[in-house]
C-alpha cells in the first residue's frame, strides 16, 4: 500500500521524469531551503542517485552564513553540479516597489539574466500551492514568455497528468513538481527520509525560521520546536501563515502578485 507521502513522491517523480524527457536544456532553482532540498532528494530518487541537470542558486549574497555552509556541504556529500548566479544589486530594481519586495525582485532579475545567457527551456522550481494564494493558481507546467512574465488569467488546461510540454521559441516553462505538497508534508517527508536541513529551521532560544529568505527580509518566528517532530506538532495546531515572516508579502495587497507576474518564483 502506498501511504500519503509515497503518493506525493510518486507524483513528483512522474513530473520530474516528464520534464527530463520532454524539455531540454533543464535546470533547477535550488534555494537551499527545506522545500527545494526535499525536491532535490526526489530528483535523486527519480534518476537513480543522479542529478542529471544543474542546480542553480540565485545568490544575493544576503543569505545567512549557515545557509552557505549547508550548501557547500551538500554539494560535497551528494556530488551534483551547482551553478551560482549573482543577482544584480538593489539599486537597479523598480523603485516603485516597496523595499523588501524590491530586494526579492533581485532574484527575478538574476533569473532573467541566467535564462538569457544559458537558454534554459525548462526551470524546475520548488514552490507549493499552499504557500500563497497566487501560487495556488499555478499549473505544474507553467509557460512564461521570454521576459519571464506570467499570464495567470489564461493558463493552459492541465488534467489527467497531461502537461503542456511544447512551446513556441520565445517561451520557457517553469516546472513545479511539488506544487501539490503542503508544508507539513515536506516536514514529514524530510523526517522519514532523513533529508538534511539548514539548522536555522530548528528553534534556538525560543526562535526559529519557518521559511528562509535573505537576512534583510526574513525574520524568525517565536517557537520552541527544536526537532522536526516538534515542528510537525507545531504545524498541526497553527493557524498562521508560513510566509508570515516574509516582509514583502504584507507590504501591500498586491506586492506578491506583481512580483510573480513579472517572473518571480
Amino acid at each position: 500500500m502506498q501511504d500519503h507521502l509515497d503518493e506525493l513522491e510518486s507524483k513528483t517523480i512522474y513530473i520530474l521524469r516528464e520534464a527530463y524527457n520532454r524539455i531540454k536544456p533543464l535546470g533547477m532553482l535550488w534555494s537551499i531551503g527545506k522545500d527545494s532540498t526535499a525536491l532535490l532528494w526526489c530528483i535523486r530518487k527519480a534518476f537513480y542517485g543522479r542529478v542529471p541537470f544543474p542546480m542553480i542558486q540565485l545568490d544575493t549574497g544576503m543569505e545567512e552564513d549557515e545557509v552557505y555552509a549547508f550548501r557547500d556541504q551538500l554539494v560535497k556529500d551528494w556530488g551534483f553540479e551547482l551553478k551560482i548566479e549573482q543577482c544584480p544589486p538593489e539599486e537597479q530594481m523598480d523603485q516603485t516597489l516597496p523595499p523588501a519586495t524590491r530586494a526579492a525582485a533581485r532574484k527575478t532579475e538574476g533569473l532573467k539574466n541566467l535564462l538569457a545567457r544559458e537558454k534554459y527551456k525548462g526551470v524546475i522550481v520548488g514552490i507549493r500551492r499552499d504557500e500563497q494564494s497566487m501560487r495556488a493558481k499555478e499549473r505544474v507546467f507553467s509557460p512564461r514568455r521570454f521576459d519571464g512574465t506570467w499570464d495567470y488569467k489564461d493558463q493552459p488546461a492541465e488534467f489527467w497528468d497531461q502537461y503542456k510540454t511544447d512551446f513556441p521559441e520565445d517561451t520557457h516553462v517553469r516546472i513545479h513538481p511539488i506544487l501539490h505538497w503542503r508544508e507539513i508534508d515536506i516536514w514529514r517527508y524530510t523526517q522519514r527520509e532523513n533529508i538534511p536541513i539548514v539548522p536555522l529551521y530548528l528553534a534556538r532560544n525560543g526562535m526559529r525560521f519557518r521559511s528562509l529568505g535573505e537576512k534583510n527580509i526574513t525574520f524568525p518566528i517565536k517557537s520552541n520546536a527544536s526537532t522536526i517532530e516538534e515542528i510537525i506538532a507545531e504545524l498541526e495546531t497553527t493557524k498562521t501563515s508560513e510566509r508570515a515572516g516574509r516582509s514583502m508579502d504584507s507590504e501591500t495587497e498586491d506586492s506578491f502578485e506583481r512580483l510573480r507576474q513579472s517572473g518571480y518564483m
Binding site: 500551492r129 499552499d130 500563497q132 494564494s133 495556488a136 493558481k137 508544508e183 497553527t238 493557524k239 498562521t240 501563515s241 508560513e242 510566509r243 508570515a244 508579502d249 504584507s250
Partner: peptide
C-alpha cells in the same frame, strides 16, 4: 495569507 489552508 493569514489563513494557511485557504486560497482561491
Amino acid at each position: 495569507d493569514q489563513a494557511v489552508t485557504i486560497d482561491t
